[in-house]
Nucleic acid binder design. Structure first.
Lengths: 158, 158
DNA sequence: ATTGAAAGAGTCTCAGT
DNA sequence: ACTGAGACTCTTTCAAT
């Protein structure tokens, strides 16, 4: 499937299942995929060693703990050579959870999580505007997240 | 901290730790936070019942399994009343992993994961353009993800 | 609410195939 | 490479505080 690593269908099935729900036991996952729990264990160990599997994260509903505002900000840079220094400055702002260097309208694109609109305004107005190299920004506020899911690495019906 | 739920510092510390790494045992996490493993267990059960903790996901490096292209697409709708029907059509495209309804330039904003530029082109040209209600789209291709991290729900140094 | 210990369940290793 | 069983570790429950 992917050229670089030699993963077979079973590897992809394991990845697909465990990306969605990592709470299933090796024995039970083995039953679903018609192999032993020991084989699931060996495969997951292999995937960890290859760096494909990087750990295990708790899925948390951040809205429920007060992070009501998700926003996206497109950033225009004065010069694209300023990218690295701007990245370092943005990394210091804890509300910024993701930063991508992009083609298209903006030079870079960030996602941020804030407790409320007041906090968003503070980050946009006080923090972003004081960073050297940022020419201007455009903000998209998320009013609703219709879905958020994983890539489908394999069709589970074969 | 958050008005609705009555979570204390220990709850936030547990959430912060387990969002980053859910592989630590309750006993070890208890040692770090100066309580017993049993208390960690009780708190996590409470957080699950409250819906704050929604499960456990394997963190996978999708680049390593051939998903080289991450892109963001801003979508202009003909009429915003078409939102729901467009959502249903977009949900059927497996490469679209996230969809937000946004204020600002675009009516909706999606993220997609593709194996290569050819697949991205196919989705943009063949699939998005044939959906009724989409006026036009603007694509940002991610050339580099500088970072991608969790919200900081508590400062771990108190 | 927190604890510590016992019971139950899961992971990990390894010898055999 | 896969299997199954044993050793080990973790989760879960619960009586006591």
């Amino acid at each position: 499937m992917s050229g670089k690593l030699n993963l077979d269908k079973l590897d992809y099935q394991i990845i697909q299942h465990m990306m969605e729900d990592a709470e299933i036991s090796y024995a039970d996952l083995g039953k679903k995929l018609f192999v032993s729990g020991g084989t699931i264990h060996v495969r997951i160990k292999k995937l960890q060693e290859l760096g494909v599997v990087k750990g295990n994260r708790l899925a948390v509903d951040i809205k429920l703990i007060g992070y009501d505002v998700t926003a996206f900000v497109g950033i225009y840079l004065e010069k694209s050579s300023l990218y690295d220094s701007v990245v370092e400055d943005l990394k210091k702002i804890p509300q910024i959870v993701r930063l991508n260097y992009t083609t298209g309208n903006y030079s870079m694109f960030v996602e941020l999580c804030c407790k409320d609109i007041a906090e968003l305004k503070k980050v946009l107005h006080d923090e972003l505007q004081s960073i050297k190299g940022i020419e201007r920004t455009e903000t998209l506020i998320s009013l609703d997240e219709s879905f958020n899911r994983n890539v489908q690495v394999i069709d589970l019906n074969d």
